[in-house]
Nucleic acid binder design. Sequence first.
DNA 1: CGCCGTTTTGCAAGTGATTCGCAGAACAAG
DNA 2: CTTGTTCTGCGAATCACTTGCAAAACGGCG
Lengths: 124, 124
Amino acid sequence: MTRARKAVLDALRSAEEPLSAAGVIARIGDICDQATVYRALSYLEETGSAESFVLHCARDGTERYYIAAGERHHHWFHCESCHRFIDLGVCRLGRLCDQLEREFDVRVTEHTLYFSGLCGDCRK
Amino acid sequence: MTRARKAVLDALRSAEEPLSAAGVIARIGDICDQATVYRALSYLEETGSAESFVLHCARDGTERYYIAAGERHHHWFHCESCHRFIDLGVCRLGRLCDQLEREFDVRVTEHTLYFSGLCGDCRK
DNA sequence: CGCCGTTTTGCAAGTGATTCGCAGAACAAG
DNA sequence: CTTGTTCTGCGAATCACTTGCAAAACGGCG
């Protein structure tokens, strides 16, 4: 693993929430170029060390967010007010996926799911 | 409802699947300008006549897809081979949303969910 | 119907996120 | 150390989408 890729993976691991490319660059942009960050993120995803999803948020626009891959994949809640993410724990769609595969005769290889709204703090 | 907006809404209604802005423009680009299509899509979504989600696909890249709003919102399956969408029927996440709201003390105002993989035809 | 203030449109240029081309740097194997 | 391969930085390009602005369409109302 090269220096740049390691730095990107470390950034993802130490973040407690999904990071956009811009987020990664904000953290380690001094270590390597933004093109390198993008390439490293693609590489990490291709090799299974990271996962990503595309999320649109009013403040930051549409960006792809990355997370270091863990044992099992998680889903996230995004607060539209403070723009933090809350980890909703491991995926609960296993049964639904199976059911849909049977019901619609498809092979589901991946799914994208996230929730947005207001977190407890911002709702008060 | 203006001519352009009506044309865009008709395009969404007559499509049996989510359309990207490019898809709409392919259908009615001769009637109005692409900027108008984008503006009309935003307008339709703001006023509740359409819904959208952002999907990434290997062939077409990352685009926002729109559907004419029906009684209840649906979720979709996207085939990575023929790039067609399959309507998976109305949302089945009601219970899960409620549960997550209680479990994590959040207010879920919207969610994004779609599945990708291979459809029955392409799997053969 | 004609006038006037508001909205919408077309066109062209601008943004923001992401990707690419290319030449030099870092590596890996022998 | 040499050589072939992979990775990086830098700058330019691309893609999806947005905006500024002037002309066109619309909506009331006298």
